[in-house]
Amino acid sequence: MGRQLTISCFRYNPNIPGDKPRMQDYKLEEYEGMTLFVALNEIREKLDPTLMFDFVCRAAICGSCAMLINGRPRLACKTMTRTLPSRFTVMPLPVFKLIGDLSVDTGTWFRNLQIRTESWIHTNKKFDFNALEVRMENKTAEAIYEPERCIECGCCVAACVTANIREDFLGATGINRVARFILDPRDERSNAEYFEVVGNEDGAFGCVGIMACADLCPMEIPLQENLAFVRRKMAAAGLKLQFPGVKIS
């Protein structure tokens, strides 16, 4: 007989007129190897089919099931219930648009990030179907792979005080994304172009250095290093750059 778990869930459906945000308790029995993802599915199957939450892969790859577990942004599928007290809370991630209960829309936010950081390889080289792929040094590939491991779960954004209060802040994931392209020799963007993207308060210089992102990243991406790398890179670039600037008075 496992522990009796009491999961206190945030409930609110903005689409139901007059619905009020509240916490609702669900009791269920824990069993060996139970993850929060399994527990939530059990609630939905046996106790309350109206409970909304997101999941796809249940293996910490898709990043859909990020939520505040006992207040901290984590992945439900990567969280064993045995690591939690017998009573705990689950809430949706802040910052992202609330769809209902534990479900948030991270897609629109990340789409916006994708466009703002121009997350694609900028190159003038013409792609040749018949040529062999250009080889990359193993070291370079490994360096790119570190920031590339981001699964866009949004935990770093939810954990960030700055992202919570400044709507336009790119967050750790955004700055980390830019680090990935700076490291990639195939991207021909100049420092000035990168500076345009993150050399401001909404990017590298908006970070306060609290590092909740680095501590709570489910993929354990070295965010302090990556964020500092972009900050130093942008500072060095910015000090050399010339901006003509338009004065309108």
Binding site: G71, R72, A159, V161, N164, I210, M211, A212, L216
Partner: peptide, 18 residues
Amino acid sequence: RIAWRLTNLMNHYDTWIW
């Protein structure tokens, strides 16, 4: 209020320090 709520919710060491 947002910052205070997040700090309390997360109970994360460095956020408290901040």
